[in-house]
């Protein structure tokens, strides 16, 4: 591990443009995926990640040197980066893939981010959503920490950065409670729902965001291949729930139970 003086923190926040959570998902007629011609916005867990990065800066002020957002996706993903910039990121990187390209898989995304980190060696903290609400894979953060050989703190519900000792204390959501861990920088954090409530993007910040720099790259520029390794065979809706019925009398209920094969003991 490269020794970092974390007195000046450089934070990278990977964000994903996903179908908005409020949209009612419909399977397309070819059963190859869902209808994507609907409202998209930033993956809510990533929004929490951006918010946390901004809040860390608000807490430790100048000790955060930069907050950079990155996304991998088609040209429309730029909107998602602008939202991150309006919330408080300083600059952004857009790894652009063609509109027609298949959605990158977690391993491809993790390798892309690793390549970015190798290119921008000053980065020492990566905060990203614990999962994206479209594919719900929940793997990118862990794969990324593995590839980089960094510490990882997943499902974070509280983050405390101690720049004097290069240590980050993270409270994690675990089954039946929470767990507090201390991690050395550099570190990958994945965010859980309770970490914070993301802010509104204020008008002046939206205007400023338009002028913030966005670096455009192609996967080839980073030497990564985003060709999927998984094949989707079929996407189908879950079976419809059959509603219950009302009975008028006890006799009718007993009759129905008998019909269904229940007998008195």
């Amino acid at each position: 591990m490269r020794p970092t003086s974390a007195r000046f923190l450089n934070i990278l926040v990977p964000v994903k443009r996903a179908v908005d959570y409020a949209v009612k998902i419909r399977v397309n007629s070819q059963q190859t995926g869902v209808d994507l011609n609907v409202k998209h916005s930033m993956n809510p867990f990533d929004e929490i990640a951006v918010e946390e990065a901004v809040r860390i800066r608000e807490r430790i002020k100048d000790e955060v040197k930069s907050i950079r957002a990155v996304t991998i996706g088609p040209s429309k993903s730029l909107d998602t980066l602008r939202t991150a910039l309006a919330m408080g990121a300083d600059s952004a990187i857009h790894v652009e893939v063609p509109e027609s390209a298949p959605a990158p898989e977690p391993l491809g995304v993790a390798k892309t981010i690793r390549a970015l980190v190798e290119k921008n060696k000053e980065i020492d903290l990566i905060i990203l959503g614990k999962q994206a609400i479209d594919d719900d894979a929940g793997q990118t953060g862990q794969m990324l920490a593995g590839l980089l050989g960094w510490s990882q703190a997943t499902f974070a519900s509280k983050v405390d950065v101690d720049t004097k000792n290069n240590v980050v204390t993270v409270l994690r959501e675990i089954d039946g409670g929470s767990e507090e861990i201390k991690c050395k920088l550099p570190l990958v954090i994945t965010t859980d729902l309770r970490l914070n409530e993301p802010r509104y993007a204020s008008l002046p910040n939206i205007m400023k965001a338009k002028k913030k720099p966005v670096e455009k790259l192609k996967p080839e520029d980073l030497g990564v291949d985003l060709t999927p390794m998984l094949e989707t065979i079929k996407v189908a809706e879950p079976p419809k729930r059959v509603g219950g019925g009302k009975v008028e009398s006890v006799e009718e209920l007993v009759g129905k139970l008998k019909d269904a094969g229940f007998t008195a003991v």
């Binding site: 409020a22 509104y200 008008l203």
Partner: peptide, 16 residues
């Protein structure tokens, strides 16, 4: 105006 906020997604739309 002094300032303002713009909704970035449907949940903020509802919230506003």
């Amino acid at each position: 105006i002094n300032t303002g906020v713009v909704s970035q997604n449907p949940s903020q739309f509802e919230s506003i």
